[in-house]
Nucleic acid binder design. Structure first.
Lengths: 225, 225
DNA sequence: AAATAAATCAAATATACATTTAACTTATTT
DNA sequence: AAATAAGTTAAATGTATATTTGATTTATTT
C-alpha cells in the first residue's frame, strides 16, 4: 500500500467547498462543473476523478455542508437539558435561525432548492439529517403541551414553529439573491435574528398554551427581553 | 385590418396552460420548450411565434396562473368585511391554504421555485401580486393588535402567520413530487386543510393576544370546531 | 535513480436544447 | 378565384456543458 499524494485531498476539499457554495447559490441543474472547478482551481476532469459524477459531488457536498453546520450550531442551542422548557425552546429556535442566516452555512440553501426542485438525489440523506433536528423539537413540544408524541396538537404546533423558523429567513435569503426588488420596509427585522427568535418563541409559547388541556395555571415565564 | 385565424388563440391558450403546469412541476431551467409544446400539441416554433422566447412565456404563464387562482380564491376567503376580526383572519388563512393545496393552481409552485432558484424574470410581477394578498392580512393584524401598520409587532405577527400558511403546504407538495421518501406519520394532517387552517388561526390568535398591549380583556371568541 | 501509483490537464466527444429558417396550410378578404 | 396574412411545420443551426480520453506531471517507494 502506497501513500497518497498530499495535494489529492486538498483538491477534493476545495471541490467540496466550492460545490457547496455554488450548489447553494444556483441549485443542482444551473450549476456547471466548469464553474465549481474554476472556483476550486481544479480541472473539470477532477470532479469525475474524485467523485465520479456531478450527482455524486452534489450528495457529498450536502453531507459536508450539513455536518459542518450541525457541529457549529448544535440543535439544542447550547441550552442545558435541565433548563426550563421555555428556555430550551428558545435555544432550539435560535439555533435553527442562526444556522440558516449564517452566510457560511450552505446546507439550508441546498435543502431549500432541493425541496423546491427535487433531484431526488438527496431524499434519504436529508430525511435522516432533518430528523436529527426535529425529533428534539417534537419532544419539547410534547412536554410543553403535556401530551403524547403522536397527538395531533403536538404535530401541528411543531409544524407551526418550524414554519416560523424557516419561512422568514429563507425569504430574506431569497431577496438578497435577486437584485432590483423594491424594498418592503421589513428587511431590518429579518436582519436581527435574535429579535426574530424572541418573537417566534413568545408567539409560539402563547399558541401552545392556548391548546394545552386545562390545568391548574402553571409557570408563565416569558423568555426574551 | 384583417381578422385573425381562430386556431391562433387556441394554441396560445394551450401553450399557457401547459407551460403553467410544467414550469410549476420543474421550474424554469429544467423545463424544455419541447415538453411544453408536446403537451400543448403544438410545434416547438410556436413558443417563439406566440411569445417570443421561453422567458416571455414563463412570465406570461405566471400571470395567467395567478390571475386564475386569485379569481377562484379571493384573499378574504369570502368572509364579509363586517364579520369579527377573528373570523376574517380565519377566512384569509383558509383562502391562502386552499389556493396552495389546489392541484389545479400552479402559481404557488412557480412562486416557490422562483424563490428558491430565482431567474429574476418574475421579480416585479410577483411583488405586485403578493401585495394584493398580504396588505389585507397586514391591516387585519393591525386591527387585532390594536397597533399602527408600521409597528414591529405587526410585521412580526403577519410574518408568523404567512409562514405557517406556506410552510406546511409547500412541504406537503414537495413530498408528493419525490417518490421513495419514508412516511413520517403526519401526512394525514397535511391533507386536511380545514383542520390545518383552524389550527393556524387558533395558534396565531393566541400569539397575537400575547403581544397585545394590555387592555380590558376583550372578545375571546374562538374560531373552529 | 528507476518504477509506480496518484493526480492533473487540454482537448475531444457527445448530448441536450433554444432559437431560426424557409417552406407549407389555412382562413379571410377583395 | 386570386391575393394576402396568420399560423404551423420539419429540419437546420448554434451554443452550452457533462463526461471521456490519453498524455503528462508529481510524489512516494524501492
Amino acid at each position: 500500500m502506497r501513500k497518497q499524494r498530499s495535494d489529492g485531498q486538498e483538491t477534493r476539499q476545495n471541490l467540496l467547498a466550492a460545490a457547496g457554495e455554488i450548489f447553494a447559490a444556483k441549485g443542482f441543474r444551473e450549476t456547471t462543473i466548469a464553474e465549481i472547478c474554476k472556483q476550486a482551481e481544479a480541472n473539470t476532469a477532477a470532479v469525475s476523478y474524485h467523485f465520479g459524477s456531478k450527482e455524486a459531488l452534489y450528495v457529498e457536498s450536502w453531507r459536508h455542508a450539513f455536518t459542518r453546520s450541525l457541529s457549529i450550531y448544535p440543535p439544542d442551542g447550547g441550552v442545558k437539558a435541565e433548563a426550563p422548557a421555555e428556555e430550551r425552546l428558545h435555544g432550539r429556535i435560535r439555533a435553527i435561525m442562526r444556522r440558516i442566516i449564517d452566510p457560511q452555512s450552505h446546507d439550508f440553501d441546498i435543502f431549500h432548492k432541493e425541496m423546491a426542485n427535487p433531484t431526488g438525489l438527496l431524499a434519504t440523506a436529508m430525511q435522516e439529517s432533518m430528523e436529527q433536528i426535529f425529533t428534539g423539537l417534537n419532544r419539547l413540544v410534547c412536554e410543553l403541551l403535556d401530551q403524547k408524541p403522536g397527538a395531533h396538537e403536538v404535530q401541528l404546533c411543531a409544524m407551526s414553529i418550524r414554519a416560523q423558523c424557516f419561512g422568514p429567513l429563507l425569504h430574506a435569503r431569497c431577496r438578497k439573491s435577486v437584485q432590483g426588488l423594491p424594498t418592503t420596509g421589513l428587511e431590518p427585522l429579518l436582519e436581527d435574528v435574535e429579535q426574530l427568535a424572541d418573537h417566534v418563541t413568545r408567539f409560539s409559547l402563547a399558541g401552545i398554551r392556548a391548546l394545552r388541556p386545562r390545568h391548574p395555571q402553571q409557570s408563565h415565564n416569558e423568555v426574551g427581553p
